[in-house]
Each structure stands twice: as C-alpha cells, then as structure tokens.
Design a protein around this nucleic acid. Structure first.
Lengths: 110, 110
DNA sequence: ATAAATGTTTCCATATAACTCAACTTATTG
DNA sequence: CAATAAGTTGAGTTATATGGAAACATTTAT
C-alpha cells in the first residue's frame, strides 16, 4: 500500500459563503479543492457556478435543463444521484472526487 | 484560504482487487483512504464490506434491505443516490468524502 | 421607482432508483 | 459429492429524482 503526500488548498464553508456574497475579484484561484460534506452539495454547485460567472439559466443551458432545475439542485430539495452530480460539475469543468475512509477500530458487528 | 498538508494512505483499484481475492490476513489496516472514481463505487462498497467481514446479507440487515439489493449496488446496476451511498458506508462505519476541484484555466463559456 | 434579470416555488408528468420475493448460479465446506 | 452458504438475476411494485412550465419573489440595474 503506497503512502503519498497530497498538498491541497482547502476551503471552509464559511469561506465559500464569503466568496458567494462578495469578493468576486479574488485572483489566485487557479486550482483548489473543496472539502465537502454531503449536506453541502448544493452550496458546492452554487459556489462553483458563481466562480464560473454563470447564471442558473446559463448552467442549465450547458446541461440542457431549466434554471428551475439548477435552483432545486443548489437548494438541496432533492436527494441527488451521482449521474446528476457528475453532469453538473462536468459542465462546470470541475473534477469530482469521492473517497471513503474506514477506521478499523470503530467497527463492531451488532 | 488555508493550505494544509494531508498525509494519506492510498489504494489503487488493483490493490483493492488483490484484497478482495486473497490476502485476508493483512494486519495494519487501521486507517486508510480510497481514492475513487465514480464508476468504481460498487467495488468500493464490496471492498469495504469484505474488509468488515460481512456477507451481503449481513450488510443488508444493518441497513434494512435484502441481500439482492446490496448485490445490485455492488454491481453498479443503478445510478445510485447520495442517500444510498451514505446509508451503506455509514453502516460500514466508513467516512465518505466528496471533493470538487476546479481549474480555472480550462473553462470557456460556450 | 420601474424594468430587467436572476432566482425560487408549485404543480405536474415521466423516468428510474430503491426495494422485495423467488428462482437461480456460484462458491464453500463437511 | 452433496449440502449449505453466498451472491446474482429477473419480474414486478413503490417511492422519488428529474425535469418542464409558468407564476412568483428577489435582486440588480437604469
């Protein structure tokens, strides 16, 4: 099992919100990663969309859906499927990563 | 934006398969992370389940579904929802992480 | 203050994910 | 090699995610 080092820029949700609200002129955002909990998925979409300077309607056009659909996704009104997630972030030219971490100790068969 | 260092043990899919097939006695597996592409989700479930020494039926019981359902999830027959992913890995006491990485340069509005 | 743009909500249809049950196949093991 | 256990498959049901249309609300200009 290989052990690697990964250096990444992380953003908290608060920082994300800061971005959404203001600070549009931030320059050095060439590449970074969000670390995300599932509940925040909608915020992630919104955040990346804003980063791309797109309206919901424009993002919708890229994917082929109405703006209302984007709104719903961003507001977590539904329990999204993987396909949808990929579709959206792919349109936003963002790479999606999914990781699973298990710690042996915790587990106990009931 | 904070920059942090994260050291993690990574596993390739091949290594995962090695584990599934043989090598059950591997000891120091206290904590590690899988790096995963969406298409491999089913393999991830299977891999973690085996790690926990559970049958599909047992995992099913933990979640409250039939073994056939687990089989289908592991074999990627459906386009799974987030809720399902979380339900499964939560039963397996595994932490799920989701991350989005965007690189500014690539994007061009069509 | 009004208009235009952007985002939200509701109502609705349709596709499909989640699931069961039962029959089947493929390992395991006594 | 039988049994038994473990996993797979198919048919059918139910719940719900996806999506459109249009009306509504909110924000951003002018």
């Amino acid at each position: 099992m290989a052990t690697i080092d990964k250096k990444m820029k992380m953003m908290t949700l608060d920082q994300m919100k800061d971005k959404d609200i203001g600070k549009v002129g931030t320059p050095e955002r060439d590449k970074y990663e969000f670390d995300l909990r599932m509940e925040v998925l909608g915020d992630m979409i919104k955040s990346v969309r804003k980063e791309r300077n797109l309206t919901q309607e424009q993002l919708g056009e890229l994917i082929g859906v109405q703006k209302s659909q984007i709104s719903k996704l961003e507001r977590n009104t539904k329990n999204v499927t993987i396909e949808t997630i990929l579709k959206v972030f792919s349109a936003l030219k963002a790479n999606v990563r999914f990781s699973v971490e298990m710690n042996e100790s915790e587990f106990k068969v009931v």
